[in-house]
Amino acid sequence: MMEATSPSTPRRAWLVRTLQASVAASVAAIFYPVVRFLWPRRGTVSSAAEVVAPFTVAQLKSLQEKGEAPPPFNFDNKPCLVVLMPDGDLRAYNGICTHVACTVTVRPGHGDIFCNCHNGVYDLNGQPVSGPPPRPLEAYKVFRRKTPSGQEEIVVSRST
């Protein structure tokens, strides 16, 4: 009976609409703080504009001559790789593979940068050579700086 009369009783329809609107407003009021709560908090680690590598140019050189590479270090909360090119140039990369975000390894013996996860290969310039990586590695600015003790340290800064 209620259903039969509802189209012709605007007061009842108005009540129903008001109830529906109140329920919708309540649901929104409940979910809004929950979604805001779930959202990750803003980063608490400040990202430095530049960072000094934990090894010197000489140390990097001797490691690479043995066919080894130093482990990646933290720059801007990302693993940073530094490569000493055969011509003596330095290169620094964000070590996160452009395929699915594994951390890549420098292989001085092979003269390439390799990703263990899906056999992605980059050359020492960070360009993808074979395997799944779709884009080159992100490059950072890198330069040498003389320390008072006469060592050459490696300074990495953001590319922009």
Binding site: P33, V34, F37
Partner: peptide, 8 residues
């Protein structure tokens, strides 16, 4: 720190 954490 967490938004609405005090509320929850």
């Amino acid at each position: 720190e967490i938004e609405y954490g005090w509320l929850i």
